[in-house]
Amino acid sequence: MTVLEERSAPSPKPDVDPEPKTRPEIITFGVVVALPLIALVAAVPLAWGWGLGWTDVVIALVLYVITGLGVTVGLHRYFTHGSFKAKRPLKIALGIAGSLSLEMSVLDWVATHRKHHKFSDKEGDPHSPWRFGTGFWAVSKGLLWAHMGWLFEADRANREKYAPDLVKDPDIIKLHRYFPVLAITSMVMPAVLGGLLSWSWWGMATGFFWGTLVRIGLLHHVTWSINSICHVFGEEVFESRDKSRNVWWLAIPSFGESWHNLHHSDPTCARHGVLKGQIDLSAGVIRLFEKLGWAHSVRWPNPERLAAKRIAA
């Protein structure tokens, strides 16, 4: 390469996005983390004595499933890893459902997760529990960091570097711009539904408590547990270049995401729970989308590839 060519060559995009998180954003993260956590702690005595009805259960459960699958099927397997291709209405629906989880906009979620895979459990990983070392206290601190401490970092993953395909997608940019509106909708909707279904202010209050605070808190902590618990504890079945593990007891609430070892061994695979008895609800939903003709080019597990990556017993 000549000196002239070297000078004219484009410089690599930095890992850090030129637009850092603003102070209001970080404060909002704090509120979104703290209030649902308080609600989860209060949920047990409230459910035991009063304040929980079938209307609350249905609202919270339905929204948990919709937003949870929005994260697992939409933000993760579709937008981040391209495990399948979707028709435009399904793409937009998955983007909306994922945004209603209040985790991040589609653009930021994907950029962060792709960066995580590039540096998984090494320097540069946004949320590795091994960030501070391998000793007991270091890993304890790392677990807290990987679970939710990393959310309060001012820097964010570079969108143009890690999600250039989404930066060029007008639908995704529109969802990104309207993320605050979708987040507010996700918080207000349960209260409105609770009030309308019970025709009472009390129904509105309990709908907000269970359908917003408890639902969001539970979903967030399940999602964050994949970042923390599933990179420290559990079983390693397939070869991977990091410390990803399978945690069976998180499989149902995470819709199959906790079969994390296979995912890091074969990231674009549409099914994470590939072994006998490994329930993967997200893969079942993708299969349904495929049969309905809404999704195609699904990257289902390849037996030969799985056998090559399987760790000998």
Results as ranks from 00 to 15, higher is better:
122 K>T: 10
123 E>N: 13
123 E>A: 15
123 E>V: 11
124 G>Y: 06
124 G>H: 09
124 G>K: 13
124 G>P: 03
124 G>E: 10
124 G>V: 10
126 P>I: 05
126 P>W: 11
126 P>G: 09
127 H>Y: 15
127 H>G: 03
128 S>W: 04
128 S>G: 06
129 P>G: 10
129 P>H: 05
129 P>C: 10
130 W>A: 06
131 R>A: 09
131 R>C: 02
131 R>N: 07
131 R>T: 10
132 F>N: 06
132 F>I: 05
133 G>D: 08
135 G>W: 08
135 G>M: 06
135 G>L: 08
135 G>P: 08
135 G>D: 09
136 F>M: 11
136 F>R: 13
136 F>N: 00
136 F>A: 13
137 W>M: 12
137 W>F: 14
138 A>G: 14
138 A>D: 12
138 A>R: 15
139 V>E: 00
139 V>C: 04
139 V>P: 00
139 V>Y: 01
140 S>I: 09
140 S>P: 00
140 S>Y: 02
141 K>D: 00
142 G>H: 04
143 L>H: 05
143 L>I: 10
143 L>F: 11
144 L>F: 14
144 L>A: 14
145 W>G: 01
145 W>H: 14
145 W>N: 02
145 W>S: 04
145 W>Q: 05
146 A>Y: 04
146 A>W: 05
147 H>Q: 12
147 H>E: 08
147 H>A: 02
148 M>H: 09
148 M>V: 12
149 G>V: 07
150 W>F: 14
150 W>H: 13
150 W>R: 08
150 W>Y: 14
151 L>F: 13
151 L>P: 00
152 F>Q: 05
152 F>A: 04
152 F>Y: 13
154 A>H: 04
155 D>R: 14
156 R>G: 03
156 R>D: 09
156 R>C: 01
156 R>K: 15
157 A>H: 08
157 A>F: 07
157 A>L: 11
157 A>T: 12
157 A>P: 12
157 A>S: 15
158 N>V: 07
158 N>M: 11
158 N>C: 13
159 R>A: 12
159 R>N: 08
159 R>C: 03
160 E>N: 06
160 E>A: 13
160 E>F: 05
160 E>C: 03
161 K>I: 04
161 K>M: 06
161 K>S: 07
162 Y>P: 00
162 Y>T: 06
163 A>P: 04
163 A>F: 06
164 P>H: 07
164 P>R: 08
164 P>L: 10
164 P>I: 11
164 P>G: 05
165 D>G: 03
